Amino acid sequence: MRHLLVFALVLFAAPALADNDPNRPTDKIAADLGVEETVFIDCFKPVNPEPGKYPAGAQQRANKAILLPCLQAANPDITNDLLDTVMDRYRPEGAFRK
C-alpha cells in the first residue's frame, strides 16, 4: 500500500511533457509563451525534435515553420526570438548556440 501511495504522489507531481519530446516541461513553456498548455502540446505534436543533441539548421527551421504559426494563432505576440529564447531555456542539452 505504501508503494502505491508513493507512486501516486510521483505520478501527480510530475510535470506535463510533450509526447514526442519528453524532456521539456510543457506547462512552463506554455506559461512563458502566454498560451494554454494544451495549445502548446497540440502545436508541438507535428514537430520532430532531435533527441539528445542540437537540431540541425534545416530541421530547426522546418520545426519552427510548423510550431511558430500555430502558436501565433493563439498568441500573436509570440515572435521568432521569443520562441527561440523560451525553447532554449528548456532545451535538455542547454541553450542552442547559433
Results as ranks from 00 to 15, higher is better:
Ala30Pro: 03
Glu50Lys: 03
Lys45Glu: 12
Pro25Met: 04
Ala65Met: 12
Leu11Cys: 12
Val10Ala: 14
Ala56His: 10
Thr38Gly: 10
Leu33Lys: 04
Ile29Tyr: 07
Tyr90Ser: 07
Ala30Ile: 06
Asp19Trp: 15
Asn80Thr: 10
Ala18Arg: 07
Asp81Lys: 12
Thr79Gln: 05
Ala31Gly: 08
Asp27Asn: 13
Leu71Asn: 04
Leu17Ile: 12
Ala13Leu: 12
Asp21Cys: 14
Glu36Val: 01
Leu4Asn: 07
Ile41Met: 11
Asp21Glu: 14
Thr85Gly: 05
Leu82Arg: 13
Asp19Ile: 14
Leu5Tyr: 06
Ala95Asp: 02
Arg89His: 11
Leu83Asp: 03
Asn80Tyr: 10
Val6Gln: 00
His3Pro: 01
Pro25Glu: 08
Lys53Ile: 11
Met87Val: 10
Glu93Asn: 11
Thr79Val: 01
Asn63Ser: 10
Ala56Lys: 15
Ala56Tyr: 11
His3Tyr: 04
Lys53Trp: 01
Leu67Lys: 11
Arg97Lys: 14
Glu37Ala: 07
Asp77Ile: 09
Phe7Met: 08
Asp19Glu: 14
Ala13Gln: 08
Ala13Arg: 02
Ala8Gln: 00
Val35Ile: 09
Pro76Gly: 12
Ala8Pro: 02
Arg97Leu: 13
Arg2Cys: 00
Pro55Ser: 10
Lys64Phe: 08
Phe44Cys: 04
Pro49Asp: 04
Ala95Leu: 06
Leu33Asp: 01
Thr38Ala: 10
Thr38Glu: 12
Pro22Cys: 06
Phe96Met: 06
Pro46Gln: 07
Pro22Ser: 06
Thr79Leu: 06
Pro51Phe: 03
Ala95Asn: 05
Ala31Cys: 04
Val47Glu: 08
Leu33Pro: 00
Val35Pro: 01
